[in-house]
């Protein structure tokens, strides 16, 4: 019994982090209709930013999180303005290869600047834990989960109630109509891309005290994020949350139950991804995005 509760808790915590890592991809795809292969690199850069702020300026990763998020947002906004903007009308191939190339550049810039050594930051909450009955609660994971939930809720609230959020949803629904309503869609694009990057960087900041950092940590995450948004339906924020929880729980279950499980757990997302694309390309929430797309 205890094992199952522990599994549930761990799966939920992992799902929370996955939500934060994946929701940016869902947002940028939903609004701009570009699949961003470089999203994992925002997570990686967010982690390194938190690590360096902790190492050089003794800032706790939790304290520096707002800075990291802001930095990620500005970087994403500028990247869209300077680079991504040019392929909005280009064929899929160019869009895929461009973001792939950006990912390669950022990854290897990190290798060149900071070497490939594994690093990790520590937070005040790093070594604290509590036992609740049969369940062990690691505080660092708990706090990361809470922060992730708060950020996701903030995004949802912003999308639902703010003027810009409404405009963003309008662009996601119908670009032409949004344009006719006087919404500056180019600005909304750049803004969504910036917010998407900021959320990725936030996930990175939280990961900095949970897992070892390396320049290559981003790409596997981006594939997992694809699995999550595919599970939930590309472009659906609620779907992404459901997908992330499902992936977090399944991975945890596989690594607890199967012998040699943590190795196989790495494959769960790919199986989900392939399975969902083959069986139900529109995901659980089933928005007709394929038709919208072209």
């Amino acid at each position: 019994m205890g094992l199952y509760v522990q599994l549930l808790v761990d799966g939920l915590f992992l799902g929370g982090l996955y939500t934060l890592a994946a929701i940016g991809i869902s947002l940028s795809y939903g609004v701009i209709r570009i699949i961003n292969f470089a999203h994992g690199e925002f997570v990686m850069l967010g982690s390194y930013a938190a690590f360096w702020l902790a190492t050089l300026y003794k800032l706790d990763p939790l304290t520096s999180l707002p800075l990291v998020v802001l930095g990620g947002g500005v970087a994403g906004y500028l990247l869209f303005r300077w680079v991504i903007r040019h392929v909005l009308e280009a064929p899929h191939l160019n869009q895929i290869l461009l973001t792939f190339g950006i990912s390669l550049v950022l990854q290897n810039l990190a290798v060149v600047l900071w070497t490939g050594d594994l690093r990790s930051a520590t937070s005040v909450v790093s070594y604290a834990a509590a036992e609740l009955g049969p369940v062990l609660l690691t505080f660092s994971r708990l706090i990361a989960f809470v922060v992730a939930v708060l950020l996701v809720v903030a995004l949802l609230g912003w999308l639902k109630w703010s003027e810009l959020g409404r405009a963003t949803r309008a662009v996601a629904q119908n670009q032409q109509a949004a344009l006719l309503m006087g919404i500056p869609i180019r600005f909304i694009y750049a803004l969504s891309f910036g917010i998407s990057a900021a959320l990725g960087a936030a996930a990175g900041g939280l990961l900095s005290f949970l897992i070892p950092l390396s320049p290559w940590m981003g790409f596997p995450l981006v594939v997992k994020a694809f699995a999550i948004v595919a599970l939930g339906g590309l472009g659906s924020v609620m779907g992404a949350i459901a997908g992330a929880m499902l992936l977090g729980l399944s991975e945890t279950a596989v690594s607890y139950v199967l012998p040699g499980g943590s190795g196989w757990a790495e494959g769960v997302s790919f199986v989900f991804l392939l399975g969902i694309l083959l069986l139900r390309p529109r995901g659980i929430y089933g928005q007709a995005l394929e038709e919208q797309h072209r």
Binding site: L97, F100, G101, L104, V105, L109, V111, G116
Partner: peptide, 17 residues
């Protein structure tokens, strides 16, 4: 290490753009 991959990435971006 890293430089040759970096060059490839830059190449990819420049080619597409």
């Amino acid at each position: 290490s890293g430089y040759s991959q970096l060059v490839l990435g830059v190449l990819l971006v420049v080619c597409v753009l």
